[in-house]
């Protein structure tokens, strides 16, 4: 995949998006022609390496290049007991200002980093999603605010693992 497009990237991207929307509306098959690289060019690169690291500390380092400090301003909403590890609803929100990203890690998963969200200015520092958990584990929320990392963690008990086996 190429992540750079020569010429006016913005213009090109807008045109491609417009075209894609028309195709989607007309219901003409899937859109599988080079739209993804065009989009990715506008955004941060996917942090592939960070998603392949084993432990939480290493994953946080791989993603941000620094360590996090605990903060009670990071709030995580996760169940005490998850009956089904394949679908664990987890929400993270914070009262910190200048939040640029929120990440969620599951300590006991084969690869700790589960999801990482970019929060541009104007977007609320709050996200909800559903994750898979291999077994009972600490779930760690990381909030990047003003260039610093803040974390909160909570243990979620899993009765049926979500990573097969």
């Amino acid at each position: 995949m190429t992540y750079s497009i020569p010429g006016s990237v913005d213009e090109t991207r807008r045109l491609i998006l417009k075209g894609a929307a028309v195709v989607a509306l007309a219901g003409l098959g899937g859109i599988r022609f080079g739209l993804a690289p065009a989009l990715a060019a506008a955004n941060d690169k996917y942090p592939e390496a960070a998603f392949k690291v084993k432990g939480t500390d290493d994953a946080i380092k791989a993603l941000y290049g620094k360590t996090a400090e605990k903060s009670d301003k990071v709030k995580m909403d996760a169940p005490e007991i998850a009956e089904n590890g394949a679908v664990v609803p987890i929400a993270v929100t914070t009262t910190l200002a200048d939040v640029t990203s929120i990440s969620i890690l599951v300590a006991e998963n084969p690869n700790a980093l589960a999801a990482s969200y970019t929060i541009p200015a104007g977007t609320m520092p709050s996200v909800a999603n559903r994750l898979k958990m291999a077994k009972t584990s600490n779930v760690i929320a990381i909030v990047e605010a003003g260039g610093k990392l803040y974390s909160a963690s909570k243990e979620v008990k899993v009765t049926v693992g979500g990573c097969g086996g």
Partner: peptide, 12 residues
Amino acid sequence: PVFVADWGPAVS
């Protein structure tokens, strides 16, 4: 972009 999600395989 107002929101970008980077996901690993641990997302349901």
